[in-house]
Design a protein around this nucleic acid. Structure first.
Lengths: 112, 112, 112, 112
DNA sequence: GTGGTCTAGACCACC
DNA sequence: GTGGTCTAGACCACA
């Protein structure tokens, strides 16, 4: 999941642009000093969730595709998080303020 | 986690007000037809995360306390979610719109 | 995939009823003389596709749930298969006859 | 496989009639902007499965021939699909209805 | 070379 | 005990 998160973050921040071919699972594994299977699993999860796609050469390539399933899932997770925040006694404005800050911060990395 | 979520949702929606004493773990377990330990675990997780507090009679009571740790955690989780959304190619406005909708929907349940 | 297919077939034929708890992955692996990970992978794929669900004891249990995604996928795969049959010059009636036979055969196993 | 599927679909829909000579693999590769080997492979797979035959000029020609092997294979694949549908709890009528719809839809494209 | 799969053994958290 | 994960090594088909 750490690899997964880092790759998602790299895509979001623009460090990995759409169409970029990732290093092979074996290669990245060696570079990171971890096992091939671990990288492979992360790559496959990213593919399942639509962040990567495999090209004709069987390499993984960055892809940006917003699908219905993802948005539905996003809403559910957000609902849980926001429920917790409200249950903690936070006001609507407080929550919105935090959300906007996170969004701005993440978006700022985007333009780098 | 289902019990956990339901209780959080009940607190957020106002069905469970601050100060309310929850049924004992054994009692709720019987009512729901599940194992005592499962309920107990949910209660303890809710206490760890600051949604409940144990009173002198060792009963669990609803508490609304926004702490630093929770907010920090909330930010981290939101960052991951929003990173995924941006990595999917969603625009800042799209994301904010979804967040506002979820917030409004959740908040509406609040007034019920 | 062999394990996957066999379990699907066992559910379809009624040998495995809804609610049945499957043997643990480790146990089944020993019984079949194969590796734990192989069974585990099959179980997880079956869960992802909605044929199994994990209960509170972390055991895999048979579940029958027809979801939209499955039906959509079924239609796509059938379309490909039927396209091939038509491209082979088979008539609509021929194809329908084969489909009915397969359905009857599979369904017959159901009542055993 | 995309090329494969598209050609099968074209034959099924009548856009490619029996006896039609396909463009050479090199030619089609250039037109589609993909590698020659990829087209060649698709053509060869189509020949292996009996959708194409090579003429004296080594060009691929559309052929409609229903062979035993194909029908056997079709039955096996259908059995797997239908097993999944039944394992999902779908009734015989539900499945048959879907099959007929797909068949009708595919057949309709035929007359275009 | 690539990813995919199977085997194998170890450790973890959970119940 | 359970599944989940990481490591490791081997072999496969594909290109």
């Amino acid at each position: 999941m750490q690899i997964y998160d880092q790759i998602v973050e790299a895509i979001a921040s623009g460090k990995l642009e759409e169409g970029t071919t990732l290093p092979s699972a074996r290669r990245l594994a060696v570079d990171l000093g971890i096992n091939f299977h671990t990288v492979n699993k992360a790559y496959n999860l990213l593919r399942e969730r639509g962040f990567l796609i495999m090209n004709r050469k069987k390499m993984f390539v960055v892809q940006k595709s917003k699908d219905e399933k993802f948005i539905e899932n996003l809403k559910n997770l957000e609902e849980k998080l926001i429920n917790e925040a409200i249950a903690k006694g936070m006001s609507e404005n407080e929550i919105l303020s935090i959300l906007k800050n996170v969004l701005k911060k993440t978006k700022k990395g985007d333009s780098l």
